[in-house]
Nucleic acid binder design. Structure first.
Lengths: 357, 357
DNA sequence: AAGGTGTTCGCAATCGCTTGCGCTATCTTT
DNA sequence: AAAGATAGCGCAAGCGATTGCGAACACCTT
């Protein structure tokens, strides 16, 4: 491998000059800079990352951390999609993304035991998903490593966050059932409380119901899978037999509900309208095709990347909580015969952010 | 951050001794070693990765490269699953895994333009998938960076490889249709020729057919999606209307075929038996549930990790081509009413490998 | 003509760790 | 008892980049 020294000797200048020329630092004449850049290009010189990292204390690497059981999710490549978005935008600036899958053990032991986070191998941590415990996140943030959360949020902290507009998306979906199809008896199938996405979606449902002066009907179950979706539907129909429409906090539960409805010989959407959330790839392929709320998975990752790049560029940000718009994807499981043009989330793209300096 | 120097001063020994003690190098008494290790633990000392990398010319990092459009695949988290397996086993030895998603442009330009591969930021490259062009792989391997291929292979090279037993799996699936269900008119739905997985699976199908003295019926289409599966089925039925069973090279095509069969009012499995390949999460959920061949996704990644670790441990390997066993998962789309115990791939786990030294 | 200002560039220190080599003390051998 | 072998440890030289500081030079200003 060609070293800086050799390039400098070849040009008859000092390493200092070459370094400054290549890094766009002042103190080099335009003429010299041109020559240096040309020679570097010509001889295909690449700076050694380790040497640079040693002195700049910066690695151009960020860690993407996610619960091991959720990468990928059994049913959907949600976090891989986010990671890909992150990698796309960071790679453009020559940053790399390290994957770190966390076992339950790791989460209990905290970030102190993870070499990747401890040996100065990364400049920042992107923690994905609501099941990374706050104490883990705070411990990582405490070690003066920038942390940013995706598909998660922590109240009472200044930790930057990128999420989808869960409340808005679920509000739109619920409203669609109320306004377009005239449903009055709409139940929510939700998962584990405490997860920000589930909570946000539940809030959106309740908002829409209350705005229409309807009584919310909520069933909570552990986990948000096809199996629990089926169970939740049974509970709903026992508690409120007159229910005509279902909002599920994710597509897996919605599909579970649809399958359970078939077993109970309730036709979807004639007897029971169903809408989901996420727009996983199989939503379009279920029978009937599932009306759902698309979350901009890759864009979440991209935006997280942008936030980080701003941070590295010394754009000092006091607080940064980004919410990305969702999109209602209308298919036939809600009773719409043919798909009209997609309806944008009424709240539109939003970014709550306070930039300073 | 605590430096080696400070630890050494604290103990009243030299940095050399501390370094040797911590790295299990000879030249330190058991007693001193004990003390050093204890103090390091106590003061939670972590070596600086950059400094170490600079002198050892080794980074404890490997790159996982995959085509950007395939991470994740639209329908299935195949490569994320492999990456997770890779990360799991490498993390145990304190190695990190960098994700690199390659655009078509990157693939054309070659590895020379990618900072992550050029700046000495990684010790090895794991290239995933059949659509990374040979020239790209060879160029990367040429730069004295170890390369290993997963879900791909290159003839006439010594590049280590980890793949699933595609021929074996497809042979088993085909045999199942012949031996258990007595089918004689079995067609193969296959995708783009040249992709090792597709080719291997097609070979396995042909082998089984020839062994039973049956005429192969093969339809090739571009791409292996639900849509092309449907198209391929139409072609099959036009060419051979008496076909009673279908082998598809992946589950997406199989599901496409099942859906198309429904449109043509052929019942599955009564009029047409269908088997797929991959066992994606939705195979069990399709209607009818899909008989398919499970490929050990995460294990492929794990094995790739092991091969790399061996390499880093200076286990010199002349050639290494690992084939992992698949498993036939019998569900009702092939005509089996209830699922018997899963049938192991008859070829069993195999590893063609020549270790030297 | 002397001094001031500004630009361009090189010297050398530094980042935190590893490791070859040499020194000392202890142990074994003849 | 002298000489050689061995083990344990420290000194100091790197690894390949970045960067503060001063030197050299050109160009103005008084």
């Amino acid at each position: 491998m060609l070293r800086l020294r050799e390039l400098a000797d070849h040009l008859g200048v000092s390493t200092a000059t070459v370094s400054r020329a290549l890094n766009d630092k002042p103190g080099v004449s335009a003429e010299t800079r041109r020559k240096v850049v040309a020679a570097a290009q010509e001889m295909s010189y690449r700076p050694n990352a380790a040497a640079r990292a040693l002195i700049t204390a910066t690695t151009r690497t960020v860690v993407f951390a996610v619960h091991r059981h959720h990468f990928p999710l059994s049913v959907d490549p949600f976090y891989p999609g986010i990671m890909r978005g992150l990698e796309e935008t960071l790679a453009a600036e020559h940053y790399g993304v390290l994957l770190l899958t966390l076992s339950d053990e790791d989460l209990r032991a905290g970030p102190g035991t993870l070499p990747v986070l401890q040996e100065g191998r990364a400049d920042a941590l992107v923690a994905a998903g609501p099941d990374i415990p706050p104490q883990f996140i705070l411990a990582a943030a405490g070690r003066s490593m920038p942390v940013i959360l995706v598909d998660n949020a922590l109240r009472e902290t200044a930790i930057p966050t990128v999420t989808a507009d869960d409340p808005g998306g679920c509000r739109d979906a619920t409203r669609h059932l109320i306004d377009i199809h005239g449903h009055r008896s709409i139940a929510l199938l939700r998962g584990t409380p405490g997860w920000v996405s589930s909570d946000g979606r539940a809030d959106g449902y309740c908002d829409a119901m209350k705005a229409a002066e309807l009584e919310p009907r909520v069933v909570s179950v552990e986990d948000t899978t096809i199996a629990t979706g089926a169970v939740a539907l049974i509970e709903v129909l026992e508690a409120w037999p007159d229910t005509t429409a279902i909002v599920a906090v994710n597509d897996a539960m919605a599909i579970g509900a649809i399958r359970q409805a078939a077993k109970l010989s309730r036709r979807v959407p004639e007897d029971l309208a169903v809408v989901g959330f996420d727009d996983i790839s199989w939503a379009a392929l279920s029978d009937p095709p599932l009306t759902t709320v698309r979350v901009p998975i890759v864009q979440i990752g991209r935006r997280a990347g942008r936030v980080l790049l701003d941070h590295f560029e010394d754009v000092i940000t006091v607080s940064s909580r980004t919410t990305l718009a969702t999109e209602l994807i209308v298919r036939s499981s809600c009773g719409c015969d043919e798909s009209p043009a997609p309806v944008m989330n009424s709240s539109g793209p939003r970014r709550h952010e306070t930039d300073h300096e």
